[in-house]
Simulated scan of single mutants.
Amino acid sequence: MTPAEAKALIEGVAARTPGVGALEESVKWGEQSFAPVRRNVGSSVRIAPRGNGELALMFICHTHLVDEFRSLYPDALEFEGNRAIVVRSSGPTDLAALEHCIALALTFKLRKRGRA
């Protein structure tokens, strides 16, 4: 998956996910970052290309989103610590699982409030 494909995937998930709305694109820590424009909706998703052709989708570690993703998709996706989903340059990627994780990140604050 290229960074452009990852960007299109994130934008597509945002467009299809109720409550997310428009995304704001910025650069954080040298990486493309996408977050809902409206406040208190979700957490950011960053695209971190790797030199070996792989990329990582990065999430804010204190949200524990990657732990949630790992519990949902332990064998479908590859994780790096508590910050990232790694997308390898070779081999299949479970796009449905990846899209679900992106949607969970983009609605993190909405879901958190719903549990409160």
Rank of each mutant, 00 (worst) to 15 (best):
A116V: 11
A84F: 02
L72I: 10
P49K: 01
F59C: 02
A105N: 10
A22C: 09
F34W: 03
L106S: 08
L77F: 00
T2W: 02
A116R: 14
F108K: 05
G30N: 03
E68N: 08
C61Q: 06
N82K: 15
K7E: 13
A103N: 12
A6D: 02
A6E: 01
I47G: 03
A48G: 05
G12Y: 04
H100L: 14
A8L: 07
E54H: 11
V45A: 05
A116S: 13
I85L: 05
T93A: 04
E24N: 12
P3G: 06
D75E: 14
E24R: 13
G42A: 09
A35R: 12
H62W: 04
C61K: 08
E80N: 12
K109Y: 13
A97S: 12
G81R: 09
N40F: 07
T63C: 04
S89Q: 13
N52A: 06
L104R: 14
L23E: 15
V86H: 03
D67G: 15
P36Y: 03
L95S: 09
L57Y: 06
L95F: 14
E25D: 03
R113E: 15
C101R: 07
F79C: 04
E78W: 00
A6I: 00
F108D: 06
L65Q: 09
R38V: 12
E99C: 11
T2F: 05
S89V: 06
V66C: 03
L110F: 07
P49S: 08
E31N: 05
T63P: 01
E78F: 02
L95K: 12
A35K: 10
S71K: 15
H64A: 15
S89L: 01
S44Q: 12
L104D: 11
P92K: 15
L9P: 01
H64C: 13
L106C: 10
C61L: 09
E5K: 15
I47K: 05
E5M: 13
R50Y: 01
S71F: 01
E25A: 14
E99I: 08
E31M: 11
A116Y: 04
E24Q: 11
N82H: 11
R38A: 15
N82W: 06
A76M: 04
T93G: 03
L104I: 12
S26Q: 05
S43C: 01
A6W: 02
A14T: 08
V20A: 10
D67Y: 02
R39K: 15
A56C: 07
P36F: 00
A22D: 15
N40E: 09
A15V: 10
E5R: 15
G81L: 04
D94C: 04
D75A: 11
A4H: 13
R115D: 07
T17K: 14
L98G: 13
F108A: 10
L65N: 02
A22K: 15
R83A: 10
A116L: 13
V86G: 02
V66K: 04
T63R: 11
